[in-house]
């Protein structure tokens, strides 16, 4: 077991280091290139790199330290299992973060595309909510849903819509306090399906709301004055792209101290997409 854990940890550390290095070099190079035209871009590029490294370090540190405690042989069987579960969950988090970074780069380069298949949106929402229930239970947060029965199947990119909903639910869960509530509604509105996620969490300051869909490098201010995880700092940027690429719209309304509601629409596209040319 110990050898398996070590191999997992080493592989993850290597992956995180490689991605961090890639983006660091990439951004530094871009900053230097842009710097000859516009010096103001350099700090933003540096800040982007710092934020990426900071976010990648969090799960890697948790994995490294869990493995370190496991190797000390000081834990009870129950505690060992807890640490192994933590390594598993943090490894998954790290993989999601790497995907988010790569997707953000593809969006910026215009290289992200959709692969639509006919799907059941109600089922997708239920499955995604089920994934968040264990974490919600740990935080004593109630996730409830109201899904209109009989919603028709339609063409959408299952993977990308799952990613968008994941980003929105992650944010709600992260910024909702203990004993809070998250309500997910799915209804048909004209020729669209309307999905809303409403929480009674800490909300978002008015001055930040207009910039929510920007990458965190563009939010301004210094790093110690804001809290954006990859799910909020890059996730909403990608989420907006996903929804709009489907022909939908997305809107966030929020009041500080009272909560946040994210509503997005997806057209009920029943036309089979044209096959892409090889």
């Amino acid at each position: 077991m110990t050898m398996t854990v070590l191999l997992i940890v080493l592989a993850l550390l290597f992956t995180a280091a490689a991605v961090s290095y890639f983006f660091w070099v990439n951004r530094q190079t871009q900053g230097l290139t842009k710097g000859s035209e516009d010096k103001s871009q350099i700090p933003k590029d540096e800040e982007y790199s710092h934020m990426i490294v900071h976010e990648l370090r969090a799960p890697v540190v948790a994995i490294k330290d869990s493995a370190s405690i496991l190797l000390s042989d000081k834990l009870s069987e129950g505690e060992e299992k807890k640490m192994l579960n933590l390594i598993h969950d943090e490894a998954k988090k790290l993989l999601r973060q790497i995907s988010t970074i790569l997707d953000a780069a593809k969006v910026a380069d215009g290289k992200l595309s959709l692969k639509k298949t006919r799907g059941d949106i109600a089922n997708l929402v239920r499955e995604e909510m089920a994934l968040f229930q264990p974490e919600a239970k740990r935080k004593n947060i109630n996730i409830i849903s109201d899904i209109e029965p009989g919603l028709p199947s339609f063409f959408f990119d299952n993977v990308r819509i799952t990613e968008a909903l994941n980003n929105i639910l992650s944010n709600s869960l992260k910024y909702t306090n203990e004993n809070g509530i998250i309500k997910v509604n799915v209804t048909k509105g004209g020729e669209n399906v309307v999905i809303s996620v409403a929480d009674n969490g800490i909300g978002i300051a008015a001055e930040k709301q207009s910039r929510l869909f920007s990458k965190f490098e563009e939010l301004g201010g210094s790093m110690d004055k804001k809290k954006e995880s990859l799910s909020s700092g890059l996730g909403l940027y990608i989420t907006k792209w996903i929804v709009e690429a489907h022909g939908g719209t997305i809107k966030i309304t929020s009041e500080e101290g009272k909560g946040t509601t994210t509503i997005f629409t997806l057209p009920l596209d029943t036309n089979e997409p044209a096959q892409e040319m090889p």
Partner: peptide, 26 residues
């Protein structure tokens, strides 16, 4: 710390050294 994983790891480690741990996520 708002990172539940870190709270869990540091709490486990510090408890093993005999400390009493109180946590807060914000």
């Amino acid at each position: 710390d708002d990172d539940e994983a870190i709270l869990s790891v540091y709490s486990t480690s510090l408890k093993s050294h005999g400390h009493e741990i109180i946590t807060a996520v914000n």
